[in-house]
Design a protein around this nucleic acid. Structure first.
Length: 210
DNA sequence: CGTAAGATTCACT
DNA sequence: GTGAATCTTACGA
């Protein structure tokens, strides 16, 4: 299959999201990140791009699923820093990527759970050791493996567009967005803090048809 | 220092 | 759907 070498007009990875985009409550940021572009520059110059299709918000207050709900530790330190930085942690044998939200001292974040692969697919396939598009980047651990994201990128300032950043994409209209409970967390199942683009197959779990 | 618990994934039934 | 793999972190002794 041919590598897509030129991105579509509305997928300009230089439209970097500014810090103000993340200095807001995580629920709003999670919703608005749907459709944005997750961009990764590898040490050899390879550019990997995916369109965000699934996110989750983790709240600073009253959210026992938030790693920071019992205070700062070595692992979650990044979440207490400025908005727009990455919080990357390891779980089981995988890594998960979050973007820190709200001002320093307010420990909230948005977990990026799935992307639709846009550019750099051959490299992603090699990193993931699969040719199956359906599972290439659908799931927080899978997308981190596909984009070579690990704890080295914890704390990275994503507004500087160096190794890892977010760029504006095509906004996803409300009628295409489903809100569901978060995946893999036992607490707070009553909160609808997961946001999914219902029109794409590139998500970890499809929400109910209606 | 030992142990338990995951914001997961994969192979299987 | 179910269960096992896998491994880092956190926390208490």
């Amino acid at each position: 299959m041919l590598e897509r070498s030129v991105l579509p007009e509305d997928m300009d990875v230089s439209r970097v999201l500014p810090r103000s985009a993340f200095d807001r409550d995580p629920t709003t940021v999670a919703r608005e990140l749907l459709g944005a572009l997750l961009c990764r520059r590898l040490p050899d110059g390879t550019l990997l791009v995916g369109r965000i299709t699934e996110t989750e918000a983790y709240l600073a207050n009253g959210d026992t699923a938030n790693h920071a709900h019992r205070g700062q530790t070595r692992r979650n330190r990044s979440m207490f820093g400025p908005p727009g930085h990455a919080y990357v942690y390891a779980i089981h044998a995988c890594h998960c990527l979050n973007v820190v939200t709200e001002p320093p001292g307010v420990a909230s974040a948005v977990l990026i759970r799935s992307i639709e692969p846009i550019s750099g697919l051959e490299t992603m396939r090699r990193l993931r050791r699969t040719h199956n598009l359906k599972v290439l980047t659908t799931g927080p651990g899978r997308l981190c493996m596909a984009l070579a994201i690990d704890r080295m990128l914890d704390g990275e300032d994503m507004t500087r567009a160096a190794r890892l950043w977010l760029a504006a994409g095509t906004p996803v209209p409300d009628r295409h967005v489903a809100c569901t409970p978060r995946i893999g967390v036992s607490s707070a199942q009553d909160l609808l803090l997961r946001f999914v683009d219902r029109t794409t197959p590139y998500v970890s779990r499809r929400p109910p048809a209606h």
